[in-house]
Simulated scan of single mutants.
Amino acid sequence: MSEPARAPGGVLDDLRDESDALDLLVAALPPGRWTAPTPAPRWSVAHQIAHLAWTDEAALLAATDPAAFAAHVAEAAAAPDTFVDDGAEALAALPPDALRERWRAARARLQAALRALPPGTRVPWYGPPMSATALATARLMETWAHGQDVADALGAVRPPTARLRHVAWIGVRARDYAFAVRGLAPPAGEFRVELDAPGSAAVWAFGPADAPQRVTGPALDFCLLVTRRAHRADLALHAAGPDADRWLDIAQAFAGPPGEGRAPRKETR
């Protein structure tokens, strides 16, 4: 996956704002609501916040102590099916106030660490090393996606923002990975993706304008699709071309196994 050709400041500002918006959503929850189940099997609201705190701490370790992060990756490789869930489970057992403060501390320290990295620094990660910009983009995508799980659990509606452009970008760039992780050959040519930006008449465009295969629709719907937070049948996305159509069935913006995804709310034929 190629990386954004821009300085990390803007996406780090957006990551901070996305995290703050989710923090505001859970800040006033009574303790009993932290155990509310989310659409992720066996994960409560507390598990979702715990996972974000755990991953922010891992990213901080990668940015500040690559050798210690390498040991962490080796530990993860020894238990690939349970390592992430175990981390979320351990932190989710904390009292809600303590969990929220741990998440706040982790993300604040990660912000400072990424901003302090010299230009061109590559940060090790579970896959290939990434720039500070790319790592911040991935953290924003995951914060937004897990925030959607929390919002769904609480019956809250989050207004889409321009920050979704980062999620859309990473979803587009991860196209070939979505095919490869399922043992499929990626399409040979690029697609054109045109997304209606939230709250404006702007269109976010990715890929060659003359690409014969394309995807169009609302940016929010595309982001819900590539984070696998909604089923394609429930979204107003349109594909032109067989490969683009296949992509909408399997798209994902995150690394790792795709999981089961969401069941459709609408009846399908």
Rank of each mutant, 00 (worst) to 15 (best):
P96I: 04
D97L: 04
D97E: 15
D97A: 15
D97C: 04
A98K: 10
R100D: 08
E101I: 03
E101C: 12
R104P: 02
A105Q: 14
A105R: 08
R107N: 01
R107H: 11
R107T: 08
A108W: 11
R109C: 05
R109Y: 05
L110N: 09
L110I: 12
L110Q: 10
Q111K: 07
Q111D: 15
Q111Y: 08
A112S: 14
A112W: 15
A112I: 14
A113G: 09
L114H: 09
L114R: 01
L114T: 09
R115T: 07
R115H: 01
R115D: 11
R115S: 04
A116F: 00
A116N: 00
L117W: 10
P118K: 07
P118T: 08
P118N: 08
P119R: 03
P119F: 05
P119L: 07
G120T: 09
G120D: 14
T121E: 12
V123I: 15
V123M: 08
V123H: 04
P124H: 06
P124D: 01
W125M: 13
W125P: 13
W125N: 12
W125S: 15
Y126C: 03
Y126P: 00
Y126N: 06
Y126Q: 14
Y126R: 04
G127C: 11
G127W: 13
P128G: 12
P129R: 07
M130V: 14
M130Y: 15
M130D: 11
S131M: 11
S131H: 05
A132P: 10
A132Y: 06
T133D: 03
T133M: 00
T133V: 06
L135G: 03
L135R: 01
A136D: 09
T137H: 02
A138W: 01
R139I: 11
R139H: 00
R139A: 02
L140E: 07
L140C: 03
L140M: 05
M141G: 08
M141V: 15
M141K: 04
E142C: 10
E142P: 13
E142A: 10
E142M: 11
E142I: 05
T143G: 00
T143C: 04
A145P: 07
H146N: 00
H146F: 04
H146Y: 06
Q148V: 01
Q148I: 08
D149E: 11
D149K: 03
V150K: 12
V150N: 15
V150T: 14
A151H: 09
